[in-house]
Nucleic acid binder design. Structure first.
Lengths: 137, 137
DNA sequence: TCTTGACCCTGTAGCAGCTACAGGGTGCAT
DNA sequence: ATGCACCCTGTAGCTGCTACAGGGTCAAGA
């Protein structure tokens, strides 16, 4: 079972440029080549790339994915590190959500105050503008 | 009232490199220079940069900020466009929150399934790994 | 007067995580 | 023989900054 890069891309829902990029940064190893210098991938590559894509979908950074891959290669190891990585990531996601919630509240306030006049007395722009100091100071 | 770039940066809590960057991309106009070729900013620049920073803090993209600035220059204009921009942005923020919530749920599931063995039977890695097909197919 | 030090200048390269070319080669069908 | 889909390499672009290197300016202190 040999896959060319296009087939691997279709199988994992990954852009071919992205696959080559992963190879370039060492996330995927360089596959053997066919006579015509095409990359020839096998099942392990497919598995590895699928793993990467799932982790990416879950929002892990490439560095985190790299760490997860290394951990999963070392089968005897205690899985506490994996757990920690996931927990750290979860905490990060929660932080982001909190930030966005605050943002959302601020934006909602802004929007609620718009009463549809002209820009000259738009409350949204007013809220963004610096505290009412005369511009020609 | 003249400000050198450092003072403007301190006044608006902005890195000087960022100010120069904003100038380079045309978000701030090129200020006059002193005899020693230093940028000399006035109050309008301070106001404009403050506006930019607040909008950025609210998560507007530089392109959106650019649009807001253009809109606010045209005082006679109907402020519906401003309102629309803000609403679009709010929708975007809400979409991001929803995505992150989904992510959070998936991660929580993952973490809940970890039972602290070795990596060989770590459920987190298992969940990320491709559906149980033999690797050497 | 000289020197130190804080500030300023330009230009370029780097970060994440891809994506999009240009300009060529391969391989199969018609 | 030709067309077309696919592959190759290498490089540059995207967002929104940030971080240099390698210089110039200017005010204060010795």
């Amino acid at each position: 079972m040999e896959l060319k890069i296009g087939a691997l891309g279709r199988a994992t829902d990954t852009n071919v440029e992205t696959i080559r990029y992963y190879e370039r940064i060492g996330l995927l190893s360089k596959p053997p080549r066919t006579g015509g210098n095409y990359r020839a991938y096998g099942a392990p590559d497919l598995n590895r790339l699928s793993f990467i894509r799932r982790a990416r979908d879950l929002g892990f950074s490439l560095d985190q994915v790299r760490a997860l891959l290394e951990l999963s290669d070392d089968k005897a190891r205690d899985c506490a590190t994996v757990d920690e990585l996931a927990r750290d990531h979860l905490a990060e996601v929660e932080r982001k959500i909190a930030d966005l919630e605050a943002l959302k509240a601020a934006l909602s306030d802004l929007i609620a105050s718009c009463c549809g006049g002209t820009v000259a007395d738009c409350r949204i722009l007013e809220a963004l503008a610096p505290s009412t100091t005369s511009p020609a100071a």
